[in-house]
Design a binder for these strands. Sequence first.
DNA 1: CTGAAAGCGCTTACAG
DNA 2: CTGAAAGCGCTTACAG
Lengths: 329, 329
Amino acid sequence: MANVSKKTVSRVINDSPFVKEETRLKINEIIRELGFVPDPQARGLAFRRSFLIGMIYDNPTAQYVVNMQQGILDAMKGTSFELVIRPCDRQTPTFLADMRSFVERQKLFGVVLTPSVSEDDRLVKLLHDIDCPYVRIASVSLDSAATMVVTHDCEGAADAARHLADLGHHLIAHISGPPTFRSAHERRRGFTEALAARAIKIRAGYDREGAYTFDSGIALAQELLKLKPRPTAIFTGNDEMAAGVYKVAHDMGLSIPHDLSVIGFDDSPVATRLWPVLTTVRLPIRDMGRMAAEKLIKRRSERRAHAEDVTEVIPSLIVRESTGPASRP
Amino acid sequence: MANVSKKTVSRVINDSPFVKEETRLKINEIIRELGFVPDPQARGLAFRRSFLIGMIYDNPTAQYVVNMQQGILDAMKGTSFELVIRPCDRQTPTFLADMRSFVERQKLFGVVLTPSVSEDDRLVKLLHDIDCPYVRIASVSLDSAATMVVTHDCEGAADAARHLADLGHHLIAHISGPPTFRSAHERRRGFTEALAARAIKIRAGYDREGAYTFDSGIALAQELLKLKPRPTAIFTGNDEMAAGVYKVAHDMGLSIPHDLSVIGFDDSPVATRLWPVLTTVRLPIRDMGRMAAEKLIKRRSERRAHAEDVTEVIPSLIVRESTGPASRP
DNA sequence: CTGAAAGCGCTTACAG
DNA sequence: CTGAAAGCGCTTACAG
């Protein structure tokens, strides 16, 4: 502006390769001095695409949501993107229409999808149709590598199984998440396969389907702990259900881990609020959010589809005080 | 468009009073038929103000943040506003600069401020200077009524005090939040004043300053429960610290509520995960978020400052199983 | 490598 | 009560 050209500034801002190095440096300096910041609304209008990244979620765990938001914001730091959030309910009749208007109206730059809505094929098809970039976070690869952050929940569950086997447990029960979550299947699969590798089989009736909720944990723990023989260990699909198991164990006068070992999944805050502190499996949720957003943002610069751009996340077992040697072999 | 005028449509969309009723109805119908939605970016560009509402927060409790977001979204449903979120840290040297660029760059329609950042006078002055509407949520009225949602934390704390007094407790301890939160003062004040009304005085050394964190709850409970005579009840400034008290009590072999009554504040999910379930004080956080956003949005239509537009929220005591009669008078 | 023109989809004054 | 003009701050083709 003040010195040489005028619309070249736009080129500099958008990293166009057709600018002389010298000019670029000069303009960048002036931009810095003036503290000039391009107006995102005007840019958006001209681009026909906003600088808003959406996060669409239906995960009921507050800590999960907040950590994920943090991670996405981490990736956006220093960029001109802003995060708009959108909780949703897949059961609602207007679900798809709501999502469509959300994305289209704001002309979102892209969206990050978290489980379980990330597993919804109708939504993904819709995003495809309206040409909205997305990144899905899920426990299995459901899509092209460039759009996936996959968490190997099965391996975390396998670690839990081996930990229990090492402690000498044979009578092991499992409370899974609801079948509408892929993670529920993955966690069960990883757990039972690793157990099988140690020649341990979960008895019929010792593997029950929960809902990832505290109440479902209570209800199923009441049934499992009435079984004869009583299981010496329970692996739950998440920490919330583990908290339900704790409650029932306390009410029955069962001591953890002496009478019963418990392992959860998530390492949510409740894991350390419980007494004794809960052994669980941790997913780096914030990192996952960051990686997902980075993928979304990166896609702009690198137009050519990076074929092998897989992002994978491995959970880790956090051994605390809720697991101990099997008392009754 | 299709029938009569052209720029009158804009008037209809913006609820201008200068449109004949007949014309308005006709245009509205066509808008509905076509499913026409005005482009928020273009509107924003022309208005010099976006349709984005910001939520600025530094509350460490995930459930608080998520509920607040939900409430704000409740108020925005059916409007063309969208929610952009912004966690912050008041201690950071770039705090004010960050907030300024966030608000200015996006030309935010307005922001909702939650505790404790809602109590930051520097930020509020900044928002004033750059002419950005805001609504503050806090436990005391810090500003003109039109910009405040005030939660009477002191009354919730007073309920807690009376509940304990009714149960015959005299040796009562308190773990407060950090002095940087107004709510910490309000909760203590409401508690001690209601106790005083029953002729109960908190002994020197039985009123300690925590940090609203689980760990601070543990640290202070360890000190308080070593005191002679040992308090028969503890009121903590939030549930997280109550969880810390539980842990120490369990470790010391103290039974709740037989040996020790505990009352928290928040009614966060952990309150019901603890064993026994925690008596606590509940704030309708989601409603608060909704009311705050409604105030912000309403200010557009009603330009004249509604002088007496106070929004007040009363917490409620939720009696569960962590409080019982004082065993040792 | 750089500039002048036209336009993104709306709104603000300004006239009628 | 309604319309024609100009502009919000940027970008896209399009020429040089």
